[in-house]
Design a binder for these strands. Structure first.
Length: 213
DNA sequence: CAGTCGATTCACT
DNA sequence: GTGAATCGACTGA
């Protein structure tokens, strides 16, 4: 028996906690992306925690830059980065203003607005693949650098909003090493996902790129 | 200022 | 399973 999702916005205090705690607690929450096309709602099923300057796997490891500045700001805001020359990925900033931890949204289930998501995810063979992977998720929700710094806890007009949804019981939460993270950052089991959920992305270890001819 | 490589995805074999 | 795509941030000289 699944409870009806709670459409109450998550308060900023939700994000003003240790990042590992927030990461686990984010599973089952709902992210609403408001577009001219209509709303798209994502049920979060897979995340990864990045623990700021203490974490060799984090973009914040070497301090603030033009790209990662939002990570060092207040909690509840969205950090979006561009990678591999093609893709965007999105995070929710955690911890008090001045710290730099964040949770990468890696996968989810589209529970509303699938028609809109399909238009941007033409290679998806079925709806489970619409947001299976962090760049796919951002593409499905039409998220790019223009949304970097958006407040997901704001009231009123916001392109992105995070709702209470239906939290996942702790016995359904799994954890393991982060995907695609290289070096010393790879040791931490800071990836969390919903047990047996078909929208969770497959694990891949980091592969160093072969040098171009 | 040139070199390196990425919190990835997709097409192909 | 393997390799290409594609560009901007970051690094070190």
């Amino acid at each position: 028996m699944i409870a009806t999702p709670d459409r109450t916005p998550l308060p900023r205090t939700f994000f003003d906690r240790p990042v590992l705690e927030v990461a686990r607690d984010l599973l089952g929450r709902h992210l609403v992306r408001t577009t001219p096309d209509g709303p798209i709602t994502l049920r979060i099923t897979e995340v990864e925690a990045y623990d700021g300057p203490n974490d060799p796997g984090s973009h914040a490891y070497r301090g603030p830059t033009a790209r990662n500045g939002v990570m060092f700001g207040p909690p509840g805001h969205v950090y979006v980065y561009f990678t591999y020359g093609m893709w965007h990925c999105m995070n929710l900033v955690c911890g008090p203003d001045g710290t730099a931890s964040a949770v990468l949204l890696r996968a989810g289930e589209i529970v509303e607005g699938a028609e809109s998501a399909r238009k941007r995810r033409l290679s998806a063979r079925n709806d489970k693949e619409l947001a299976k992977g962090p760049a796919r998720l951002a593409t499905a929700l039409d998220v790019d650098r223009a949304l970097d710094g958006t407040d997901a806890c704001a009231t009123g007009d916001t392109p992105l909003r995070i709702l209470t949804g239906t939290p996942v019981p702790s016995d359904q939460v799994r954890s393991g090493p982060r995907t695609g993270v290289s070096g010393d950052g790879a040791v931490h089991p800071w990836r969390y996902w919903v047990a047996d959920d078909p929208t969770v992305s497959p694990y891949r270890a980091h592969v160093p790129r072969r040098r171009r001819s």
